[in-house]
């Protein structure tokens, strides 16, 4: 199928883009960044925006700013940027590299963007999980002003966020985990590159032999990825071992309210929630052991 007709704009500056967006938002004009989710929806005529505002020509939008405590990614930083584990300082660089390897396929990663994933808000989006677990700051800008939202205040449901139609997601800021933070990521899908049926991202520090500052989240299970506070609470203050991980997984399984669809039931997703979390925790603990050795 071919997309329905639309007007195409290629602004050269952010202000120009925001002006076009504010003009067209009411009729449904959309920002085009990587287009790897939007264009298939247009080709299937599920989405038919009357106008697209292509931001790929705006200089500087692909900027990456690294400070002592934070990393800011601009709107057109692509998934492929993370193919290089050294793209960001440790432990963020290797962690996001490991996550990015699970995002769709290589040619999709060449064009798709980090911020575009947050704007699209697929429940199985790896970057939405990363943003949730790292408590990212999501920058929304319109011709009228700017606001910054935390994931808990931004994600609303499957492909639904609290971004207003005249707002553009111009960047995202991630807090840098402390050096020595243990992390683990595990994604379950049926084939390489498929949307996750369940995934978990875990970070924790070890202080005096016990877990501190545990941060973990699940994606692909519920209507949007989020941190699972009860499971974090199980971990903090405990020594990392299989029994504790199993307990955290039990807590997560009890807390989640999984989605259900034609091919994947809520029960199976709940079951997977426990498994992917245990496996992500095991991966994190292997990293501790490895680094200690």
């Amino acid at each position: 199928m071919k997309p329905a007709p639309f007007a195409y704009h290629k602004p050269q500056s952010l202000d120009e883009a925001l002006a076009l967006l504010s003009e067209g938002a009411e009729e449904g004009a959309l920002i085009l960044a990587g287009g790897q989710s939007l264009v298939p929806m247009m080709a299937l005529r599920v989405a038919y925006p009357p106008a697209l505002i292509d931001i790929n020509g705006i200089a500087g939008l692909d900027a990456v700013e690294v400070s002592g405590t934070r990393v800011r990614l601009g709107a057109t930083v692509r998934h492929a940027a993370f193919h290089d584990p050294g793209f960001l300082p440790e432990p963020l660089g290797p962690m996001l590299h490991a996550v990015a390897e699970n995002i769709a396929h290589y040619p999709i990663r060449q064009r798709g963007t980090f911020c575009g994933s947050l704007a699209h808000a697929d429940p199985s989006s790896e970057w939405c999980l990363v943003a949730s677990v790292l408590d990212a700051e999501i920058e929304l800008r319109s011709a009228g002003g700017e606001r910054r939202l935390r994931p808990a205040d931004y994600f609303e449901g499957p492909m639904m966020t609290l971004r207003e139609p005249d707002e553009m997601l111009v960047g995202v800021t991630l807090a840098r985990p402390a050096p020595g933070t243990c992390w683990g990521f595990y994604e379950f899908n049926r084939r390489a590159g498929d949307f996750a049926l369940g995934m978990a991202l875990v970070l924790y520090e070890i202080e005096d032999g016990v877990i501190a500052n545990a941060r973990l989240g699940l994606g692909g299970i519920e209507e949007h990825p989020r941190r699972i506070a009860t499971a974090e609470a199980v971990l903090n203050g405990r020594a990392p071992d299989e029994a504790v991980f199993a307990e955290a997984a039990e807590a997560a399984m009890a807390e989640v309210e999984p989605m259900s669809d034609a091919t994947t039931s809520a029960d199976y997703r709940r079951d997977l929630a426990g498994t992917v979390l245990r496996r992500a925790l095991a991966a994190a603990s292997r990293r501790t052991t490895h680094e200690a050795a």
Partner: peptide, 26 residues
């Protein structure tokens, strides 16, 4: 035409991409 099969893969500025997921205008 929905970006999965890859039969339309071409190089754009050296990168292998799906040419069904880009508009000619881009």
């Amino acid at each position: 035409e929905h970006g999965v099969c890859g039969a339309c893969t071409v190089l754009v500025d050296g990168k292998a991409v799906r040419s069904c997921l880009m508009f000619g205008a881009q």
